[in-house]
Simulated scan of single mutants.
Amino acid sequence: MSEDVYHGDILSKEQGEDEVTLVISIPENLYYFKGHFPSSPVLPGVALTHWVMEYLAEYFEVDPNQFVGLSALKFQIIICPNYEISLHLKKLNSSKYSFSYSSIHGQHASGKVLFK
């Protein structure tokens, strides 16, 4: 039995003062594909937003406990196993960050994260 995998593999990282871009490979055995949907797995939006929060904490040292909400949240194109996606995070000000997921398939998701 294989171990559950909760993150894609980070293939590359470009980091500037107020932004970071991660290229992430999405494995077939990603935990979030289980039951969503068995015959045609799709990465749920809640997993994408969870990753955003984790990477904001890691690269911008934001405190997830200060989370207020999401705005302008859009899910445009589904993400399937074996996709290679790019996550771009940008600090807009001390309490607002933007994110976008994209790949050769197009824009997958985007939004803004607000903190206290």
Rank of each mutant, 00 (worst) to 15 (best):
V5T: 13
V5G: 00
Y6V: 08
H7T: 07
G8F: 01
D9L: 08
I10Y: 01
L11Q: 10
S12L: 00
S12Y: 02
E14P: 01
Q15W: 05
G16I: 00
E17Q: 07
E17M: 00
E19A: 12
V20F: 14
L22V: 02
V23E: 12
I24Q: 06
I24P: 07
S25Y: 15
I26S: 06
I26M: 02
E28S: 08
E28W: 02
L30Y: 03
L30W: 05
Y32R: 03
F33R: 00
K34F: 08
H36E: 09
F37T: 00
S39V: 13
S40Y: 11
V42L: 09
L43F: 10
P44K: 07
G45T: 00
L48I: 07
T49N: 08
W51V: 05
V52D: 06
V52Y: 09
M53K: 05
Y55R: 13
Y55S: 11
Y55V: 02
A57L: 03
E58H: 15
E58C: 07
Y59A: 10
D63K: 15
D63S: 13
D63R: 12
P64R: 04
F67Y: 11
V68C: 13
V68K: 14
V68L: 15
A72E: 14
K74C: 01
K74Y: 04
F75H: 04
F75K: 04
I77T: 14
I77A: 04
I79E: 03
I79V: 14
P81N: 01
N82K: 13
Y83I: 04
I85C: 12
L87I: 12
L87M: 13
H88V: 07
N93K: 09
S94C: 09
S95G: 06
S100A: 08
S102K: 10
S103D: 05
H108A: 06
S110T: 09
G111A: 04
K112F: 09
K112E: 09
K112L: 11
F115L: 03
K116L: 14
K116A: 12
